[in-house]
């Protein structure tokens, strides 16, 4: 650790809590990729890490560097804005691609069947 000794306790605790919260959220999201049953359910999982998970980590980084350099460091806002704008676009295009592929292959009944089919295994 190259951390200065005079780093205040409250900031360290706050940053630690935000770090643990954010990373456990994104771990949960990635775990959802394994646990959920079909593609349309799995698309929802990474959103956890991309919204609140990334938000917590960016906030932690913002607090850490602002305290460390004793001046406001806010360039993490850029990543936050970028992720907020781009994640929906990626997921939307991906879902449309999946729907398109399912339709063209004729197993579109998944769209209607999916409400009941998830109880049985993958």
């Amino acid at each position: 650790m190259t951390l200065a000794e005079e780093f205040p306790t409250w900031a360290a605790l706050l940053v630690s809590m935000l770090l643990l919260l954010g990373t456990s959220l994104s771990l949960t999201g990635s775990l959802g990729l394994l646990r959920l049953r079909n593609f349309y359910q799995r698309v929802h999982a990474p959103t956890l890490g991309a919204t609140l998970g990334a938000g917590c980590l960016l906030f932690a980084s913002m607090i850490f560097f602002s305290v460390l350099q004793t001046r406001p460091i806010v360039h993490e806002v850029l990543i936050a804005v970028f992720v907020t704008v781009t994640t929906p676009i990626t997921l939307m295009v991906l879902v449309r691609a999946a729907v398109h592929r399912d339709r063209s292959e004729g197993n579109l009944d998944e769209l209607d069947r999916s409400k009941t089919s998830n109880q049985s295994g993958r």
């Binding site: 650790m1 951390l3 000794e5 780093f7 205040p8 306790t9 900031a11 360290a12 605790l13 940053v15 630690s16 809590m17 770090l19 643990l20 954010g22 990373t23 456990s24 994104s26 771990l27 999201g29 990635s30 775990l31 990729l33 394994l34 799995r42 990474p46 890490g49």
Partner: peptide, 26 residues
């Protein structure tokens, strides 16, 4: 305070690595 931060950083990095593992599996 440095110790708490160091430990939580380690745990966070392990979490994120596991998350990348899950995604890589998928």
């Amino acid at each position: 305070s440095a110790q708490v931060l160091g430990w939580s950083l380690t745990v966070s990095q392990v979490f994120l690595t596991l998350a990348m593992g899950c995604a890589a599996f998928r």
